[in-house]
């Protein structure tokens, strides 16, 4: 009977395009639909990883945090209640950010000059300048490491997870107006700094 209910709640087979379809996937995963849970993972893993990575010393640590965050989120979907203006991705990246914060507080400081080897970026599309990507990544991590913890969280959520200013405000406790200010300031300094290696 339970399996029949889970099958009734099956999510759409194609990639969802809007939040309504994500909510449908969440409902399906909540009643034990593994396919829907897999789809949710595939849709959000990149954004979660982009949020977590600046707070972790290594790729392996970021992978661990991402894995724990997904396992926690997918296993406790009943804790997520959809509200207008609060998307699933916001809830998910907030969970991941909390885990990354804990890991960061445990003393594993971000190493700005971590050896980003070409193997780590070997999955990039062929023909792309891998060296440029490595350089961009290093520069971005170094620039983010120089920000204050609060600004880093705001910038990472806004640019990395592509949340709106209101969603970032909800996740961090900073007012939406302040989020916009921080992002404007960081955007100017980051783009100036990133243009250096990109142009080189």
């Amino acid at each position: 009977m339970f399996i029949a209910f889970a099958a009734l709640d099956a999510g759409p087979p194609e990639a969802p395009a809007d939040d309504g379809e994500v909510e449908q996937l969440v409902r399906a995963a909540r009643v034990g639909n593994a396919q829907a849970a897999r789809r949710l993972y595939a849709l959000h893993v990149q954004r979660v990883f982009r949020v977590v990575r600046p707070f972790c010393a290594t790729e392996a640590a970021a992978e661990d945090v991402t894995q724990d965050a997904f396992a926690d989120a997918l296993g406790n979907l009943s804790r997520y209640s959809p509200r207008p203006g609060a998307r699933f991705v916001g809830w998910l990246v907030t969970l991941a950010l909390n885990r990354a914060r804990k890991q960061h507080a445990r003393g594993q400081r971000t190493e700005a000059h971590e050896a980003s080897t070409l193997e780590q970026l070997a999955g990039a599309a062929e023909g792309e300048a891998l060296e440029e990507r490595v350089l961009l990544k290093r520069t971005l991590l170094a620039a983010l490491a120089e920000l204050s913890p609060r600004d880093r969280e705001v910038v990472t959520l806004y640019f990395g997870a592509e949340l709106s200013a209101a969603e970032v405000a909800t996740a961090t406790g900073v007012s939406a107006a302040n989020v916009r200010k921080i992002c404007e300031r960081a955007s100017a300094s980051l783009s100036q700094r990133l243009r250096g290696p990109a142009a080189a």
Binding site: L74, G123, L136, L190, S191
Partner: peptide, 28 residues
């Protein structure tokens, strides 16, 4: 340029696949 820089933080397909297997195992 900032969006492109954040894209470089994304995991490689191999990492993503390995992560997916671990997350699925944890979910099950």
């Amino acid at each position: 340029i900032i969006e492109r820089a954040f894209e470089t933080l994304e995991p490689s397909p191999n990492t993503r696949a390995a992560l997916q297997a671990r997350v699925e195992a944890a979910y099950e």
